[in-house]
Structure formats: structure tokens, C-alpha cells
């Protein structure tokens, strides 16, 4: 299938089964360049599983996944990252023994294009690449307001900053598609507002396409033009925030049978 103009990510009928459980069933999603799409649903609806499928952590039992027309099926996570997909994790997964700066540097590993001999020998090529990494890491730290804590251990940062660092780290890989898994979890209203601005801002600054999983309705409704709702692994609704808010199936899924 040739890539259609402007389509970045194309998921067709993606499904995965764990034993008898259909965690995700017949999931379709087509994202245009620059879009910010929200993915919501009750706990255990399969949202994170969608991320794990896209990033190659799990392989779909059925369906096809394309990024810029290139098939993602069967690729390992690190290959998919190299193709331009980065993610954050629901339960923040920073490298706990590394400093804030090294966490950002860790994302630049992918651009080193060095061999083991370069690294051991430390020749010109190494100095040039390593210098670039230092510079780039500094820039990212500056942009995300983390320069002041660059040498602190990453896990000693306050929660909100850890989330920010995780986004900075994901951007270090220079993705075209960013997957954010509940970035507002555990944040206070003030932090949430800041986060929303940050997401909007990085989308423009880095020309990103973003898929966002979020529990907090105010965040999703506030920044996403298009929202998908998953329940029991199936897409039950798709549309603008207004449409989603009024969708009877969504209300049922969130409030239970009693409300309907």
C-alpha cells in the first residue's frame, strides 16, 4: 500500500489475544501528520496494549500497522524507535541510576552511529559525535527547564518534573510520532494546566503527531480535537470532544449500566 498523503500512522484491524482474553480487538486508527488524538477508556480497556502493539513490545495476532507506509509488524522495539516512534510510560520508567542529564543522553544513543571501536578508541569521530550529544542534551534540558537539576539522580526529582523529563527523553530520539501514556496521572490541577500547554507547545515546536492516553477528561477534552474510546479492547466511539461527551455508549462505559 503506498503511503497516502499526510497519513503518518495507519493501524488496520489490529488485535491481540492473551490466552482467551482479547485485549485489543479490531482496532483501527489513522492519524494525519500533526494531529493530536486522545485515546480514552476505563481501566483495563486495552489502551496501553495499543501502545505496546505500536512499539513492538507485543506482536498483534491479527492486523497491520504502518508508519509512513512502512510495515511495523514483526519489528523489534528499538527498530520502531529508529523509524520515529517514541513513547512515555504510564508508570514513569526513567533510568533510576542515571542522572537527569544521562537520562536525556540515553535517548541520543540512537543518533550516535558509532561502533564499539570508536567508543573504545575515542578518536575524532567519537569526539565529534559525543560533542554533538552533549550539546543536544544541553539544549533539551534547557528547553524543558531541567538544566538546573541536570546532575541530580533522575528518580530524586519531584513527580511532575519526572514526567517532564520523560517527555524530554522521548523527544531526544527525534520521533515523528509521540505516544504519551497518562502523562497527567498524579498531577495537581496546576501541573495539569502546565502539562497541557507543554504538550501543545512541543507538538508545534517539534512538528509532532501525538497519540495521548489519558484518564483525566479535562486534559483530553482540552487539547484533543479527535478522541477514540476503548472499552474491553473494542473502539466504542470516535469523534470530537463534543460528540464523545454525548455518546451514549461512552456514558454507559464510564458510568455503568445504572446510568443508562
Amino acid at each position: 500500500m503506498p503511503p497516502e498523503n499526510g497519513v503518518l500512522l495507519d493501524l488496520n484491524d489490529c488485535s491481540i489475544q492473551f490466552g482467551g482474553l482479547k485485549a485489543v480487538d479490531g482496532f483501527d486508527l489513522r492519524m494525519s501528520k500533526g494531529e493530536l488524538v486522545g485515546l480514552i477508556g476505563p481501566n483495563g480497556a486495552g489502551k496501553t496494549t495499543v501502545f505496546n502493539l505500536i512499539t513492538g513490545v507485543y506482536q498483534p495476532t491479527r492486523g497491520e500497522m504502518l508508519l509512513k507506509g512502512r510495515r511495523l509488524n514483526g519489528l523489534k522495539t528499538h527498530r520502531i524507535t529508529a523509524l520515529g516512534i517514541a513513547r512515555t510510560f504510564q508508570n514513569i520508567r526513567l533510568f533510576s541510576s542515571l542522572s537527569v542529564r544521562d537520562n536525556v543522553r540515553s535517548a541520543l544513543h540512537i543518533h550516535c552511529s558509532l561502533g564499539i571501536w570508536d567508543v573504545v578508541w575515542r578518536g575524532k569521530r567519537f569526539a565529534e559525535r559525543e560533542g554533538w550529544v552533549q550539546g543536544r542534551a544541553g539544549e533539551l534540558l534547557e528547553i524543558f527547564g531541567l538544566a538546573g537539576v541536570a546532575n541530580e539522580p533522575a528518580t530524586s526529582l519531584p513527580y511532575g518534573m519526572q514526567r517532564r523529563l520523560e517527555i524530554a527523553r522521548a523527544l531526544g530520539t527525534e520521533p515523528s510520532l509521540l505516544l504519551l501514556d497518562e502523562p497527567a496521572a498524579g498531577m495537581n490541577p496546576h501541573e495539569k494546566r502546565e502539562l497541557m500547554q507543554l504538550i501543545e507547545w512541543v507538538r508545534e515546536r517539534f512538528g509532532l503527531t501525538i497519540l495521548l492516553i489519558e484518564h483525566d477528561m479535562s486534559v483530553v477534552m482540552g487539547i484533543c480535537r479527535r478522541i477514540l474510546v476503548l472499552d474491553y479492547g473494542v473502539t466504542i466511539a470516535e469523534g470530537s470532544p463534543e460528540e464523545i461527551r454525548r455518546h451514549p455508549k461512552v456514558i454507559e462505559a464510564y458510568l455503568g449500566e445504572a446510568a443508562s
Partner: peptide, 27 residues
């Protein structure tokens, strides 16, 4: 030289969190 370079950070990334390391593009 291995472990202190950005390239060799990958060793410690694998130790800290393999899933996150792979997500950062580390083989």
C-alpha cells in the same frame, strides 16, 4: 570508555530498565 560514552550508556540503560532502553532505540 564504554560505559561513560553516550553510546555505552546503553549498558546501564539495559540494567536499569530493559523495556525503556528498547523504547529509546537500544538494541
Amino acid at each position: 570508555n564504554l560505559v561513560s560514552s553516550a553510546y555505552g550508556l546503553a549498558f546501564r540503560m539495559v540494567r536499569d530498565d530493559e523495556t525503556a532502553a528498547a523504547a529509546m532505540g537500544v538494541d
